[in-house]
Design a protein around this nucleic acid. Structure first.
Lengths: 156, 156
DNA sequence: CAGTTTCCCTATAAAGTCGATAGGGATCAA
DNA sequence: TTGATCCCTATCGACTTTATAGGGAAACTG
């Protein structure tokens, strides 16, 4: 699972917007500064988020960006799909379309099961929860094993 | 999670080798034909699998490739890491190295939990199981919900 | 030892993606 | 009208992906 810089920046921008409680919109420059992200790059990402309905924008002196949907309804998965495309892709297609000859047929089960487990996490966390500084208990539970925090290296 | 053609071909080649029970090695051409994979591309992949210790090779008239390790000990995750790199990457680094300011700190928990769930599937299936035509019951259980077989589209 | 077979190594290549940067046009509020 | 801000297009270098082509090196066969 490769999370691009673009997707990471998009999530951080949405979290920042979710934390702006007062009515005033946030300028892209302010978001970029708060999250230490290249301003012009973030501008392009905010454009994508606007086209996909996550934020609305206003130009002019008091302009900026606002969340367009309640933060409680925006799942991490929604953002990743809008920015990076499908969560799970096998050779450029979706898992249920992967076809194998009989000797490798079980591979498809692996890809479908993999997608299920990816969805459990990414559809189980909302921008509102992240903006509040946490994740749901069932997700947090997954991180409690110390091994979860260790990299498993390639065997050579 | 993006599974490249290369990784997919590598897994299918290893499954094919695991099913070759008699002592004779399998020629790359034979594997390519059985799995309908471009021969020259597969040759390069088999070279990678040899360098990473998954297979051994022999040249000459009766040459070909053999598994170098027991199929029961080769996890899908091992192959993907050797061919495609780390299972989970956030902006080019590992989840535990992702750093955020305090307002977005909870994102790291998402990435760590995500990696845990990815590992559960990919470290839970071996080449031997795939060659036998199935996956462990706890993995298969994940695929039983009909929704597991449906694509979740982007919300616009 | 010659011939055949197979692996092995290097080069090439088109297309696409990623992570930006630059410049200026469009729009809005005061 | 002015200044602020969003918005659009173009560009860029580096890298990755999915291959294809040609021939060298080694092993076995008779």
């Amino acid at each position: 699972m490769r999370i691009s810089a673009k997707a990471d920046y998009a999530l951080r921008a949405l979290i920042e917007l979710a934390q702006a409680t007062d009515g005033a919109p946030l300028r892209s420059e302010a978001i970029a500064a708060a999250q230490e992200v290249p301003h012009k790059f973030l501008e392009a990402i905010l454009g994508d988020l606007r086209k996909t309905g996550f934020v609305s924008s206003q130009r002019g002196g008091d302009g900026g960006y606002r969340l367009r949907r309640p933060a409680e309804e925006i799942q991490v998965a929604h953002v990743l799909r809008a920015i990076d495309g499908p969560l799970t892709e096998i050779r450029g297609g979706c898992p249920e379309d992967a076809t194998y000859n009989s000797s490798a047929a079980a591979l498809q089960l692996v890809w479908v099961a993999l997608r299920v487990n990816i969805r459990t996490v990414l559809e189980g966390v909302t921008i509102a929860q992240l903006a509040a500084g946490g994740v749901p208990p069932e997700i947090e539970k997954l991180t409690e094993d110390p091994d979860a925090w260790r990299t498993h290296w390639v065997i050579r």
